[in-house]
Simulated assay, not measured.
Amino acid sequence: MRPSFPSLAALILACLFLVVSPALAQRLDETPRVAVISAFPPEIGALNAATSEQKTFDVHGVRFVTGKLEGKPVVVFLSGVSMVNAAMTTQMALDRFNITRIVFSGIAGGVDEGLDIGDVVVADQWAQNLESAFARETDKGFEVSPSIRNSTLANYGMIYPRAIILPGTDLSSPARVWFPADPALLATARKVAAEVALQRCSADKCLVHPPKVVVGGKGVSAPVFLDNAGYRKYLRATFEARVVDMESAAVAHVALVNATPFIAFRSLSDLAGGGAGANEMHTFMALASDNSATVVKAFVRALPN
């Protein structure tokens, strides 16, 4: 019997679903795991070395490593540098693994004048500081249409911060500037903060002040490496930021949409343009990466099963 056209169409769609959907988001592992993420190789070395029972999965060139870190099931991977990479790879992990919590570990630039290189900052909320409108310059100064500017945050020259309208909402829905870290994870981080010992020296370079773990405050992220004293001051004054990086707010955004608890640990490798001399990142990157990993390992160990 020849199938009717609707039946044939349904059959074709079913076949396409069977062929295409596994390639789009095939679950690779069902064990509940903590996602442990860093942006680029120098940040993740200590975490990879501490992960046992490793099994590797390659998805479109992204290497996901399952195993145990401090006795807890994890999937460890690199997000890639900057916002789009971080959002993409985090969603890839959420689609393919049973992720219960997301933990980011890495380096960052210090914005708060009360912090020093080597300190580990655990912000309780993150903003995308260059989600913005570049204003038209007129004889009266910079002008932005009210329909475009939806944030009351102060501008930096032509750059006017904007809030973000989440997927699935219309243009009249409330927009969001801040994306939160999970309160329960922050509470665990506070318990751990007083217990970890951080490195003060790496090779022939030592920090002026003993590093510390600071939990709370605000962080910002953008697809820009910041090494500018003026904009650094602006971020501190306008966003009340303590730390700036290139990934955390993007991961926090993805985590919120997927209703998955998130937290980020960022050790200061430089002062984002606030230092007296050249940028300090390449001098203290290894030390900062190891300090962040040290706190993350203690944090994962302290997580409830």
Rank of each mutant, 00 (worst) to 15 (best):
V65A: 06
Q91E: 14
I107P: 00
A35D: 00
K68S: 14
S79C: 07
D119S: 12
W126A: 04
E131N: 14
T66E: 10
A23L: 15
T100A: 13
S105I: 07
E53N: 15
V122Y: 10
S105V: 09
G110T: 09
A87Y: 00
L24E: 08
G67P: 14
T51I: 06
A86N: 03
D124C: 07
I44M: 14
P42F: 03
S79D: 06
A87P: 06
Q125N: 12
A87H: 01
N48W: 02
F57R: 02
T31I: 02
V75T: 13
S79T: 15
S82Q: 07
A35V: 01
I44S: 14
N98T: 15
L28G: 02
D112I: 09
H60G: 14
K68A: 14
G67I: 13
D58W: 00
M83L: 15
A25R: 11
T66S: 15
G109E: 08
I99L: 08
E30I: 05
L47H: 00
K72Y: 11
F97D: 02
V65W: 04
G45T: 11
D95T: 01
G109I: 11
D58S: 10
S52M: 05
S105A: 13
I107A: 09
F57Q: 04
H60N: 13
G114T: 14
S105H: 10
Q54C: 03
L94F: 12
P41H: 02
G110N: 09
N129R: 09
W126R: 03
F64K: 09
A123H: 05
P42H: 01
Q91T: 05
E70I: 05
V120P: 08
G118H: 08
A123Q: 06
L94C: 03
E113N: 13
P42T: 03
R96V: 11
M88K: 01
A86S: 13
K55C: 01
G118M: 07
T66H: 11
E70K: 15
V111T: 10
A23M: 06
I117Q: 06
S38Q: 01
I99Q: 09
V103D: 12
F97P: 02
V36Q: 00
K55E: 13
V62L: 03
A127V: 00
A39E: 01
G45A: 11
S132G: 07
L78H: 11
K72N: 14
G109Q: 08
G110E: 05
Q128M: 14
P42K: 00
G80C: 08
A87T: 04
Q26A: 13
V103N: 12
N85Q: 09
S38K: 02
P41E: 12
I44G: 15
V65M: 10
R96C: 12
D58M: 05
Q91Y: 03
S82R: 08
G71Q: 14
G71A: 13
L24T: 05
T31M: 03
F77S: 10
P41W: 00
S52G: 04
V81L: 13
A93F: 03
I44N: 06
A39Y: 02
G110H: 11
F40C: 02
Q128G: 05
G71K: 13
T100W: 07
L28M: 09
